Simulated assay, not measured.
Amino acid sequence: MPITNKIVHNMPPQVSEMSGPNSPRSAFTIVELLVVIAIIGVLVALLLPAIEMARESSRRSACSNNLRQHAIAVKLHEQSHKTFPTGGWHGWLGDPSAGYGPKQPGGWIYNILSFIEHDSLRQLGKGLSGMPKEQAMVTLMESPIDVFQCPSRRLPRTYPYTGPELKNAKPPKDVAKSDYAINAEISYEKSEVIMPDIQLRGKGASNTILAGEKSLSSENYTNGTGIGDTLVAYVGDSDDIRRSGSGAPMPDRTAGIRFGGPHPGGVNIAYCDGSVRFVGDDEELVPTK
Score class of each variant (00 low, 15 high):
Ile7Cys: 07
Gly228Val: 13
Gly228Cys: 11
Ser120Ile: 07
Ala184Glu: 10
Arg277Pro: 03
Gly212Arg: 08
Thr288Asp: 14
Ser114Gly: 11
Ile3Phe: 15
Asn220Cys: 10
Ser61Lys: 14
Leu33Val: 08
Thr162Met: 03
Phe84Thr: 00
Ala169Asp: 06
Gly163Glu: 08
Val286Asn: 10
Pro249Ile: 11
Lys177Asp: 10
Val279Asp: 07
Leu47Glu: 07
Asp119Gly: 15
Pro132Gly: 14
Glu284Ala: 12
Asp174Asn: 15
Leu67Trp: 01
Pro85Val: 04
Ile40Arg: 05
Asp282Pro: 01
Ile30Asn: 08
Val276Asp: 03
Ile194Leu: 07
Asn10Leu: 15
Tyr110Ile: 03
Ser178Glu: 06
Pro96Lys: 01
Glu52Arg: 01
Thr162Ser: 11
Gly88Asp: 02
Pro49Tyr: 10
Asp239Leu: 13
Tyr100Glu: 09
Gln69Cys: 11
Ser19Met: 08
Tyr188Cys: 10
Gly228Ala: 11
Ala45Arg: 06
Arg242Cys: 06
Leu67Thr: 01
Ala255Pro: 00
Cys272Phe: 00
Arg243Tyr: 01
Asp197Glu: 14
His70Ile: 14
Ser206Trp: 01
Ser80Pro: 00
Asn65Pro: 00
Pro85Met: 03
Arg201Cys: 09
Thr4Ala: 13
Asp252Asn: 14
Val232Gly: 10
Asp281Ser: 12
Pro105Asn: 08
Trp89Thr: 02
Ala211Thr: 03
Trp108Cys: 02
Ile116Phe: 02
Ile198His: 00
Ser23Glu: 13
Leu200Tyr: 14
Arg154Glu: 12
Pro196Leu: 07
Pro2Ala: 13
Ser215Lys: 05
Val15Ser: 09
Val44Phe: 14
Ala248Arg: 14
Arg153Cys: 13
His263Gly: 06
Val147His: 03
Thr208Cys: 11
Ile269Lys: 02
Tyr100Ile: 12
Asn183Tyr: 08
Tyr221Trp: 09
Ala176Val: 12
Gly88Glu: 02
Ile257Asp: 12
Val36Gln: 11
Gly228Lys: 11
Thr29Cys: 03
Asn66Phe: 04
Val147Phe: 06
Ser191Thr: 01
Asn168Ala: 08
Ser244Ile: 02
Leu155Ser: 15
Pro144Met: 01
Gly247Cys: 05
Thr86Pro: 00
Met131Pro: 09
Ser275Tyr: 10
Tyr159Asp: 13
Glu17Leu: 12
Ser57Phe: 03
Ser58Gly: 10
Arg122Cys: 05
Val8Cys: 04
Thr230Val: 09
Trp92Asn: 06
Gly224Ala: 06
Phe278Leu: 12
Ser16Asp: 14
Arg68Val: 04
Pro102Cys: 13
Tyr234Gly: 03
Pro251Ala: 09
Leu166Pro: 10
Ala50Thr: 11
Ser19Tyr: 05
Ala71Leu: 07
Pro12Val: 12
Glu165Asn: 14
Tyr271Ala: 04
Gln69Gly: 09
Gln79Ser: 12
Gly106Thr: 13
Thr230Ile: 07
Asp282Ile: 09
Pro156Trp: 11
Gly256Ile: 12
Gly260Trp: 01
Asp282Gln: 13
Ser26Thr: 13
Pro160Cys: 08
Ser238Trp: 02
Asn111Gly: 12
Ile241Thr: 15
Phe115Met: 07
Ser191Gly: 02
Gly94Ile: 15
Lys82Val: 01
Lys167Pro: 00
Arg154Leu: 11
Trp89Arg: 06
